[in-house]
């Protein structure tokens, strides 16, 4: 697994490079001068209030919005090219998915393989092996035939994580991964994230849940329309920075895991 991700040995591998990225929607600035460089093998928290530009930044990383200025590279490539290499996986929030869609856990994880399949998307033996392996890692192998709608929130989250694993993406973008998951899933996910880091993947976690960021993110990016600060979590998580990030609110937010939701 590690070998498959290490493709470019000559230069030091930069998974994500964003240089002075600006995004605006019909004249409304959503993000300006956002710069960020993430190496292979790190877990990075993307922290900001609702509307601070977290999802815009994700969309820019996935090529859904075109920056009006600035450059984004993933694994040294332009975003569309990186996508065709299956480099980027997005793990959605539970609310973003139609849970009553008639599809099984196995089929959802198989969707992670589509980009590597032929035009008709007929799975090969190696695709099936990748799906099986991914389901084992998230401990859902026994539930593989279940309709996706019958899973709990945490199990569903693991299914989408398995899809990202099956895709063999080197960059994982996770949107609020800890919202509405059970203790078992939370523990499993944090273990998986550390394994991913050791495999050379880079994980970017969008959240306003500060306690989880402190627990296991190596790096943190504070965002409020632009990148206010980024670096080692211990250095960045200062009262002053957090006050700036959360628009002048007192930094005792740190004590409450979801307190920023009450702000928005």
């Amino acid at each position: 697994m590690m070998n498959s991700l290490k493709t470019n040995n000559q230069i030091e591998e930069m998974r994500i490079e964003a240089d002075q990225v600006c995004v605006d929607y019909n004249g409304t600035v959503a993000l300006y001068d956002a710069s960020l460089r993430l190496k292979s093998g790190c877990i990075c928290g993307l922290v900001g209030m609702n509307g601070a530009g977290k999802s815009t930044f994700f969309k820019a990383l996935m090529g859904f919005v075109r920056p009006s200025r600035g450059i984004i590279r993933i694994n040294g490539l332009e975003v569309p090219k990186a996508q065709r290499n299956q480099a980027v996986a997005y793990v959605p929030q539970n609310e973003g998915i139609d849970c009553s869609f008639p599809t099984s856990v196995w089929d959802v994880v198989m969707m992670g393989r589509y980009g590597s399949m032929n035009f008709l998307r007929i799975p090969s033996a190696s695709d099936r092996k990748a799906v099986w392996h991914a389901l084992e890692r998230v401990e859902l192998i026994d539930l593989r035939k279940r309709p996706i709608g019958t899973l709990s929130g945490g199990q569903r989250k693991r299914a989408f994580l398995a899809r990202a694993i099956a895709q063999r993406a080197s960059v994982l973008l996770l949107d609020e991964p800890f919202t509405g998951v059970d203790v078992r899933t939370e523990k499993l996910m944090s273990e998986l994230f550390i394994q991913f880091r050791n495999e050379g993947r880079t994980i970017l976690i969008s959240t306003h849940d500060l306690s989880h960021v402190r627990d296991f993110c190596d790096l943190v990016v504070l965002i409020n329309k632009t990148v206010l600060a980024y670096g080692e979590t211990s250095e960045i998580f200062t009262d002053e920075n957090l006050t700036r990030t959360f628009g002048g609110m007192p930094p005792d937010l740190l004590s409450g895991p979801t307190s920023s939701e009450s702000l928005s």
Binding site: M62, P92, F101, Y114, R163
Partner: peptide, 19 residues
């Protein structure tokens, strides 16, 4: 059929894998 199904189910994922 597979691509259209994926498009109906999760267009974001479809796009993010280059479809």
């Amino acid at each position: 059929r597979r691509d259209l199904m994926l498009y109906c189910f999760d267009a974001t994922h479809a796009r993010s894998i280059g479809i």
